[in-house]
Structures are given as C-alpha cells and as structure tokens.
C-alpha cells in the first residue's frame, strides 16, 4: 500500500507509520519541522525490511496553503497515493483553554476547520483516482459534551460528524472513510496527565488502526474497551453528567 501520513513524527502517527514501513508498505510523511521529518524518515527507513528510503514534505495544519503542494509531493514520490492517514492535532486542557481565547481559537481552527479542509483536498484526489482510504483521528471526546473536554471535544465532535457524512456520501464511489476514536493513549500529548484505567499504548492502537485500514472498518475505538465506556457515558442522563467529573 502507498500511504501518506500527516502526524507521523510523534505518538500514534509514528507507531502507525512504523508498522506500515515494517511490513513493506511505502510511506510518505507530512509535518511541520524539517529536522523532525528527517529524523522520522530515517527511523522509518530503518524499520523497512528492504531499507526503503522514506520521503517527506512540509505541511502545516495551521496553514492550508501548504496542503496542495504537500499532497502533490506525496503523489510524486509514491507514484500513487492509495491511503491518507491524519493523526495531527493539538490538545490543551479545558482549564487552559478557558483562560486563553487565542489558544482556543487556534485549537478549534486546527482540529476542526483546517483538518476538514485538508480532508477535502484528499477526498478530491482519492475520488479522482477511483477511490482510496482516508483514515482520520477524531476522539472519544467527540462522542458527548463533557466537563473536562468541552472545547477540544466540540472540535472532535464536528470532525466525527463530517467524517461520518463523508462515508455516507461517498462509500459507493470507493472512498473508505475510517474514523479513529482513541480513548486515553500514553503519548506525548497526554504526558502531563495521570493515566486513567484502560489507558492505551500507541503500538497497540496502531495495530488496530492498520487492521481497520486493511478491512475498511468505518469506526475504530482504541483501546476497544472505550466503545463500551462511551456507550455507557452517552446513555447517562444529563443530571448525572452535571454531577460527575468525567
């Protein structure tokens, strides 16, 4: 498979890119810092059984004018892009965001507006080649409005909504849309937070995401137990949600 990944420099994106490289898939990485991209490319090359070089291009979620050129570069390098994975996003705690409107605006713009715009670029290109896979990381935080993730969750809710609509609208055209909803996963993004029970590891999440890409599974909770947890949380009445802390 030929895959372009936005967000492969860290966390779950890195784990997915490694898993793909290790089984011989051709990957191309997109990100903001040239030095970080170079280090990631080298790492992926070492993970590839045939020591295949891995290309990279600059792509900044904060700057949609970079999207087209980045995807052009991926197409030029891979020949044909069959799958695009988006893990890139930013995070801040609800307390931080409530104190900082600029940061709130940035988070909403990156995690929702610009992610959707990036996906729109990808949608057009994949449909043009007769289909392909778009795998995007949303979050369990988008499943229900909750105290600790009001703003971050709102952006992810919007993103999940968009991805579901995209799936309905273009499934027949060969577009496979995969929405990944991680629960708490131990990456740099959550480094400062105390892990709750069922906290996941990036490598395990990567394995379930790659399986979903292979099979075209539309929604993935990772770790899987979060599907159940969210089922319960979504069923709780409002008066309880107002009382509890999660």
């Amino acid at each position: 498979m030929r895959v372009a990944i936005l967000g492969a420099t860290q966390g779950m994106g890195r784990a997915i890119a490694r898993l793909l490289a290790e089984r011989g898939d051709q990957v191309f990485v997109l990100g903001i810092e040239p030095e970080e991209l170079a280090r990631t490319s080298a790492d992926l090359q070492a993970h590839s059984p045939s020591h295949m070089p891995v290309g990279a291009a600059l792509c900044d979620l904060a700057d949609p004018s970079t999207f087209a050129a980045a995807l052009d570069a991926a197409e030029a390098d891979l020949g044909d892009v069959e799958c695009v994975v988006v893990t890139a996003a930013i995070f801040a705690t609800q307390d931080t965001l409530e104190e900082d409107l600029d940061r709130t605006e940035l988070l909403l713009r990156l995690n929702f507006t610009n992610t959707v715009v990036f996906c729109e670029h990808v949608r057009r290109r994949l449909l043009q080649r007769g289909g392909g896979t778009l795998c995007v990381f949303s979050s369990v935080a988008g499943d229900r409005g909750r105290k600790p993730v009001v703003l971050y969750g709102a952006a992810k809710a919007g993103l999940s909504h968009y991805l579901e609509g995209l799936d309905h609208r273009h499934h027949e055209d060969g577009l496979r849309v995969i929405t990944v909803k991680p629960g708490f996963v131990k990456t740099g993004m959550t480094a400062g937070l105390k892990p709750p029970p069922f906290a996941g590891e990036p490598v395990a999440v990567a394995a379930s995401v790659v399986r979903a890409i292979d099979r075209g599974t539309p929604v993935v909770y990772a770790p899987g137990i979060w599907r159940l947890v969210m089922l319960v949380i979504c069923a709780l009445p409002r008066f309880i949600m107002r009382k509890v802390g999660f």
Partner: peptide
C-alpha cells in the same frame, strides 16, 4: 522511552 527513533543504520 518515547524518544526511540533510529536516526541512521548502515546495513
């Protein structure tokens, strides 16, 4: 332990 990239390897 998360900083675990191979930066170069000469086979």
């Amino acid at each position: 332990r998360l900083a675990d990239r191979i930066l170069s390897f000469d086979p």
